[in-house]
Simulated scan of single mutants.
Amino acid sequence: MHLVQLLLPLYGQDGARLTPTLFAAVRAEMVERFGGLTAYSRAPASGLWAQGEGERVEHDDVVVYEVMVPRLERAWWKTYREELTARFRQKELVVRAQRIETL
C-alpha cells in the first residue's frame, strides 16, 4: 500500500487566489479513481524554500490531499502531476508517495 500526497497551492504564480473549482475537480477525480481521499484544507500548511544560498525565500500556502493506493502507478502519477502543475499555474507542484503498512 502507498500513501500519495498532493500539495496544492492556494495561489497561482501571479499571486492570485486559485478558484475553489480547481480544488473541487481534484477531489472529484481522486474519489472517482481511488474511492476516496483525505483533505487537509482547514488550516493551510505554509511552505518555505530557497533555490540556492543567498536566494530569495519563496512562500506558498498549500492544502494537502492524500489517497491510499494498493499499487503505485508511477507513469499515471507523473502525467497527473504535470497536468495539475499546468492547471494550478505553477512552475512545479509536489506529488509524493510513501510505502505504508495499514494496521
Rank of each mutant, 00 (worst) to 15 (best):
Val67Asp: 06
Leu84Asp: 04
Ala75Pro: 00
Tyr11Lys: 04
Arg96Ala: 14
Val62His: 03
Gly54Pro: 04
Arg99Phe: 15
Thr38Pro: 06
Gly35Trp: 03
Glu66Gln: 12
Pro70Ala: 12
Ile100Cys: 14
Val64Gly: 04
Thr38Val: 13
Thr102Phe: 12
Tyr11Arg: 06
Ala50Trp: 06
Tyr65Pro: 01
Leu84Glu: 01
His2Val: 05
Leu22Trp: 01
Leu84Ala: 02
Leu93Asp: 03
Gln90His: 05
Leu84His: 01
Ala75Tyr: 10
Leu37Trp: 02
Gly12Trp: 06
Leu18Ala: 06
Val64Thr: 13
His59Glu: 10
Thr19Lys: 12
Glu83Met: 08
Trp49Met: 12
Lys91Asn: 15
Arg71Met: 10
Glu58Gln: 14
Ala45Asn: 09
Pro9Ser: 00
Asp14His: 04
Glu53Lys: 09
His59Asp: 06
Pro9Ile: 00
Leu72Gln: 03
Arg74Gln: 15
Leu84Phe: 06
Glu32His: 09
Leu10Ile: 09
Arg33Ser: 08
Ala43Trp: 00
His2Arg: 05
Gly12Ser: 14
Val63Lys: 00
Gln5His: 08
Arg27Met: 11
Leu6Phe: 15
Gln51Arg: 13
Leu72Glu: 03
Leu6Gln: 03
Trp77Leu: 14
Trp49Gln: 12
Asp14Ser: 12
Ala43Lys: 10
Thr85Lys: 07
Asp60Pro: 01
Ala43Cys: 11
Arg81Leu: 07
Tyr40Ile: 07
Ile100Gly: 05
Tyr11Val: 05
Asp61Tyr: 02
Asp60Ser: 14
Val62Asn: 04
Phe34Tyr: 15
Leu72Pro: 00
Val63Ser: 01
Arg42Glu: 14
Pro44Phe: 01
Gln5Cys: 08
Met1Pro: 09
Gln51Phe: 05
Arg89Asn: 13
Ala97Gly: 08
Val26Gly: 04
Ala50Leu: 11
His2Phe: 15
Glu92Lys: 05
Glu58Asp: 15
Phe23His: 03
Glu82Asp: 14
Glu92Leu: 09
